[in-house]
Amino acid sequence: MAVKNIKNKYLLLFLLFIILIIYILNHTLSAYNYIYNDKNVISKLYENKSYTNTYILYNSEQDGKWLHHMNSVDNVNSFQSKSKLFEVDILIGSNNLICCS
């Protein structure tokens, strides 16, 4: 009986391991598919090369690198010391601008 229990334990661990692998693969593939672009589409696109390196360098000096999505008042309290860049959704009201909850 004891031997059988040990075998069941290993079987259970093995099954859990398989489930974990499937979970990781599933999410990785999902992420890859999310950003995958069909090469046939890309090869047939025109190019618009407007704007020069001068423009890019000018803007590089103006901007930071990362920002946070901050549509909650709670997020302001949590993140304002960690980042200087914030993205906020805005609705134009009759006399004011509406943003977060």
């Binding site: 549509n71 008042v73 302001v76 309290n77 304002q80 906020v88 959704d89 805005i90 609705l91 009201g93 004011n96 601008l97 509406i98 943003c99 977060c100 909850s101």
Partner: peptide
């Protein structure tokens, strides 16, 4: 967006 606040009120939450 529910229980929304104005942008003015939102910005006033920042210390600086």
């Amino acid at each position: 967006m529910q229980n929304n606040i104005t942008l003015n009120a939102y910005l006033s939450l920042f210390n600086n």
